[in-house]
Design a protein around this nucleic acid. Structure first.
Length: 271
DNA sequence: CCCATGTCCTGGTCGC
DNA sequence: TGCGACCAGGACATGG
């Protein structure tokens, strides 16, 4: 369920159900995620949820003594459910609360993560090297342009680099480049300040629109309460290779960049 | 066999 | 020659 809007929608969905609640039980059914789930997660039994934050695609559930870090990988879903809900395949981890609700993680591919940051210390260094949040003021007009100077990497790959900016995954990188009229193979350092201004605005718009609409529906995404999102209906290029461009009718092309698929309109996106 | 929303890590290349 | 920045691609697990 992974791009930033889906994680943010998830955060918004679960927060009201768990903030202020105390943990009654932590169950690890399969600790083998991207990294083993540490024993310390049991320490949060009895503690109260103070807040649910997000950094990049990491969810951070705040407690007095530290934070529970959750990442959904490529196929993870988090849901708030009733106690009696049957356990299904790939339900690897859950936290039960005093209001009899359960926060349950299901992750088919197990690329997700559950870690404990004692005293909020980022011992794995997962959060320390991340670029700015795309929806923050740190991600301003000058930011992408100044960081792109002398970089030869294709703009599509540049946008997906978490050290540059977080939360722009394959879907929204494709969409933002289409809307900005930028060809995905252009070298990052060869793009003008003016086009970066446009691209920056569009990234914010696209992510905000997706959050507003509840996240993209991909086959394994469900919102915290189980309703699917529906932003996939408004995608211009992602998943539409071979189909006509919705703006000019030209057939959309697909290429691979850094082992990911890029879809673009050869007419609307000039090099 | 192919493909799939993420991201850490390795190893190669390049410029100073 | 060394060092660091940069970049491509592999790896992870499962299912369609």
């Amino acid at each position: 369920m992974p791009e930033l809007p889906e994680v943010e929608v998830c955060r918004l969905g679960i927060s009201p159900h768990i903030i202020g609640q105390k943990v009654t039980k932590v169950i690890v059914r399969n600790a083998q995620l991207r990294w083993p789930i540490p024993e310390e997660v049991q320490l949060l039994t009895g503690q109260e949820v103070l807040a649910v934050d997000r950094r990049a695609k990491y969810l951070l559930i705040r407690f007095a003594t530290g934070s529970l870090l959750l990442h959904l990988g490529m196929s993870g879903t988090l849901r708030v459910i009733e106690q009696a809900t049957p356990v299904v395949k790939h339900d690897h981890f859950e936290v039960a609360f005093t209001n009899n609700k359960i926060l349950r993680l299901n992750d088919t591919r197990r690329f997700g993560a559950v870690l404990w940051l004692a005293d909020n210390k980022d011992s794995q260094g997962l959060l320390s090297k991340l670029g700015p949040e795309p929806l923050s003021d740190d991600f301003c007009h000058d930011y992408l342009f100044s960081h792109a100077q002398n970089r030869k990497v294709p703009i599509k790959t540049f946008l997906m680099n978490n050290h540059i900016v977080v939360g722009v995954g394959n879907i929204y990188a494709n969409e933002a480049l289409f809307l900005a009229g930028i060809h995905p193979t252009m070298q990052a350092g060869a793009i003008s300040k003016r086009r970066y201004n446009t691209l920056t605005d569009i990234i914010k718009q696209v992510l905000n629109a997706a959050i507003k609409q509840g996240g993209t529906t991909l086959k394994d995404f469900t919102q915290a309460d189980g309703r699917p999102g529906y932003f996939a209906q408004s995608l211009f290029v992602y998943g539409r290779a071979g189909q006509p461009c919705l703006v000019c009718k030209e057939t959309l092309l697909e290429i691979r960049q850094s082992n990911r698929s890029s879809v673009f309109c050869p007419k609307c996106q000039q090099e």
